[in-house]
Amino acid sequence: MVTIGLIGIGGVGPEFMPQIPWSLEHFNPELLQQNPRLVYVESESETDHYAGHEVMSLDDFKALPPEETCFNVGIADGSARKHLSEELESHGFGLLGIYHSRSQCLAHTPPGPGILLGRAGISVNSTVGRSLLVLGASLIGQNCALGDYVTIGSQVCIEHTHVGDFAQVWNGAIVTPGTADKPRRIGQGAIIGMGAYIDEDVPDGAVMVGNPSRELRRNPVS
């Protein structure tokens, strides 16, 4: 029996779980034909069922046969997504992308594995790395290049922007677009706070908040 596990029952997991059947129908019809069961994976859960789905511990999930098991990580923190997805992939589990039924992906090259695309759009001529997470009502406009494990909140519109690995752009942040020959750059591991207004390039590891934005602190970039 094929099992699809979504890790995390915090915020992101329950948002994407109801979208899995639609996503399978359009992107992995061969999996849908095998009538997979959908489970949450969460080690510290107090219940064994959540919103109509079984909740498994990570250890139980790892004991499943890898060739019949797919997963994705519904955690907003990019490093946690990297840690968990690399560990499970090393056991042979497949990383499955999940698309919202009202999402649209016109990316120039196919997005990296493990995308979690909410009610959002990715426009033409953009490239997307591994395990991107986009929440609702966002738009990745044209000529964007997103690194691996990037997190984009809701109501974010970016265009002509390069986003480094592990960067997070939170709800309603405004990033003024660069130009085709000089894209706006958001550094590796940078965090753009909710509603921040960014009109300059953001250095690696910077935490930017406010309107006009100021640098709250600089996190070390590994």
Binding site: G10, G11, P14, E15, L135, G136, A137, G153, S154, Q155, N171, G172, M194
Partner: peptide
């Protein structure tokens, strides 16, 4: 229009949201 109410929220009676309000978890 286009508001988002995220997970684990408790909203009381007679609450009003404008357009594009995002209420995180």
């Amino acid at each position: 229009v286009s508001t988002t109410v995220s997970h684990h929220n408790e909203i009381g009676d007679y609450v009003t949201f404008g357009h594009r309000v995002a209420c995180s978890g």
